[in-house]
Write a protein that binds this DNA or RNA. Structure first.
Lengths: 149, 149
DNA sequence: CTTGTTGCAAATCGTTTGCAGGACA
DNA sequence: TGTCCTGCAAACGATTTGCAACAAG
């Protein structure tokens, strides 16, 4: 049985995701199923274009990918990452610990960081009067491969 | 005499900025001067569109704002902020301590946070083999004004 | 059946580029 | 004067929207 990063099985992740669709009164359509499978099997984060390529055997329209992934984000199935290059990237989020990335400034490859100790900052911002506090944190640098080139 | 956030005078900031242009062999043109004045008097961060409005009396072309602010960023005069809404924002950086923001998810207003204790994380990423390490960190929430509405 | 979803085309938004005329050193 | 800079128009890439055909419940 396929295992994902957190040790949860592919099947249980798919089931949870489909259940999330139900809860949001969203239909279990073929495109959505194909996209969820792709996003669970490939952690990313990936751009819409890249996700589109991942499911190219299903011949989905690029617009459909935009719409579905947008919905996935709205119901919390995927997380949107901004690497500051004008392209949004998404990664499957259910069952993953909150984390951040290091992005190579040259090749744009992303590596995950395990820890995030910013909860105390979130609390500080809440004390300032904000609600629904979240944060984005990304690191940028030049990776060893690109340093060599 | 006008004072800015850090207590340095407007005049000394302008002079430093113009000197930075010289160092980079960039000409002291009217558009650049107007943009620097606007950016120093209004800390922002502001989008290109907003900066364009700030100097509308000078009738600069929007493209000129893009090009000049882009150059300012390249020589370290301004800092680029990504708030994840597909629009880049810029703030004058000379003489300002490295800091981050809280952005209201509703009205998009940004408030500055004084501290950044992430140097240790930068060091960690350097240990991972990356060079020229930087990071972006922004907080999002709903501000009190928008909570009421 | 009937409502939500998809595909296609076209519009939109932020940003970049090409080029000829104009301003700075 | 020679080069850098600006304005205008047009291109560009990522994303959104309108609408008719289609599939899920």
């Amino acid at each position: 049985m396929k295992k994902t990063q957190e040790g949860r099985s592919f099947q249980s992740q798919i089931e949870d995701a489909l259940f999330a669709l139900d809860e949001a009164s969203l239909k279990r359509t073929q495109p959505r199923l194909a996209l969820l499978e792709a996003l669970i099997e490939n952690h990313g984060p990936y751009s819409i274009e890249e996700i589109h390529k991942l499911v190219r055997s299903k011949k989905l329209d690029l617009v459909t990918v935009y719409r579905c992934v947008g919905l996935f984000e709205k119901i919390g199935l995927v997380r949107r990452c901004d690497f500051g290059d004008g392209t949004a990237r998404y990664e499957f989020q259910m069952g993953y610990r909150h984390h951040h990335h290091v992005i190579c400034k040259v090749c744009r490859k992303a590596q995950s960081l395990e820890t995030c100790e910013l909860n105390k900052f979130d609390k500080l911002v809440k004390k300032m009067g904000y609600t629904e506090v979240t944060h984005t944190l990304e690191f940028f640098g030049v990776c060893e491969t690109c340093q060599a080139a």
